[in-house]
């Protein structure tokens, strides 16, 4: 999940709603898609911009921890696969920025808010990728958690977002498979490789659980977003589903999930598991994760260093336009 703690604009009771708002909510309840030019409550628009913007930012910041290993990928094939994956992520960023632009905000404005720290990206990308096995763990766990959230978002109420998700989900499942494939190689490899695989799981397990956001009981913004079908499942539902899916995969790899309390609960038909350390989560969101400074710093530097490039292209476009004008 690439959108965490998305602040939703205030929730209204039916009595407080205007006739337009009631009609809008009824459309959503009937399962209709909302399209860009149609009327929508300001809160719906703002919440979507936050969520889609955060999602887009996560895709582009997410290039960095994986890009960290492109130049050190161990084989030509792994290098090619990782390049393809990171390229997909940049592409996802592009669709999502474009989809967000239909809500009346430009990509430059969204980037400005990312660079100033006003908008966030997923906390997971503030963790370092220290070994090659981390690239496997990112694909397996991080993309796995992202898919868990994004599959239901294919049915989200906003048309451009839902359509972007359909495309993105196809590519994400390939990403998860490549991550798991790296883990399989590592887990069945030399003792050093197996140790790297276990270490990667140890470090990425709880941060992956955090990707779903705080528990429902502490999640103040969920109700309105769910009424608007911007959010389809609760954080806890998705986290539970993720754990239940991942446990047998870890067993198959012969790796141990770093949670002594993890066990099957017959009664609920799911696993019991330990909560991540939420104080760590809030610290990372507040900018104190191991890589916040590097990640945001790298994006700001890329943008600032590239100013001359973007200005140069603009200058050329203006010259070309005035030459065309003069020739007419």
């Amino acid at each position: 999940m690439y959108a965490q703690l998305v602040k939703s604009e205030g929730s209204k009771t039916r009595e407080e709603m205007s006739p337009e708002e009631i009609a809008f909510q009824e459309r959503i309840d009937r399962g209709e898609r909302i399209e860009p030019k149609e009327w929508m409550p300001e809160g719906y628009r703002k919440t979507l911009i936050r969520q889609m913007g955060q999602h887009a930012h996560s895709e582009i910041v997410g290039q960095l921890p994986e890009g960290n290993w492109i130049t050190r990928a161990p084989t030509l094939e792994r290098k090619a696969i990782l390049l393809a994956k990171v390229q997909d992520e940049a592409g996802h960023g592009l669709y999502l920025y474009s989809a967000a632009e239909t809500l009346g905000i430009s990509r430059d404005e969204l980037l400005e808010q990312l660079h100033s720290g006003k908008m966030k990206y997923s906390s997971i990308f503030n963790y370092p990728t220290l070994t090659w096995a981390d690239i496997g763990a990112v694909g397996w766990l991080v993309d796995g958690a992202a898919i868990m959230n994004q599959v239901p978002l294919q049915r989200t109420s906003y048309g451009p977002y839902a359509r972007a998700m359909i495309r993105i989900c196809k590519e994400e499942s390939f990403h998860q498979r490549q991550g798991y494939d790296i883990m399989m190689k590592m887990a069945s490899g030399t003792p050093e490789q197996k140790a790297m695989a276990q270490d990667a799981l140890n470090r990425f397990w709880y941060p992956s659980l955090m990707m779903f956001g705080p528990s429902d009981k502490d999640s103040v913004h969920s109700a309105q977003s769910m009424a608007w079908k911007i959010k389809i499942n609760t954080n806890d539902e998705l986290r539970q589903k993720f754990v239940d899916q991942t446990v047998p995969q870890a067993e198959y790899l012969g790796l141990t999930i770093p949670d002594p309390n993890l066990k099957w609960n017959e009664e609920k038909g799911g696993h019991d598991f330990s909560e991540p350390d939420w104080s760590e989560f809030f610290a990372v969101i507040a900018g104190n994760g191991p890589c916040n400074e590097e990640r945001l710093g790298a994006r700001v530097k890329a943008w600032d260093d590239g100013a001359w490039f973007r200005d140069g292209l603009m200058a050329h476009a203006e010259k070309a336009a005035s030459r065309r004008h003069a020739a007419e």
Partner: peptide, 26 residues
């Protein structure tokens, strides 16, 4: 070219550079 990954001056360039690097590695 792949060293640029995530550091290009525009998102379109990140995509194009990754694509070029991918072709060359292939």
């Amino acid at each position: 070219v792949s060293e640029w990954c995530g550091h290009a001056p525009a998102l379109e360039e990140d995509i194009a550079l990754a694509n070029t690097a991918l072709d060359l590695i292939g």
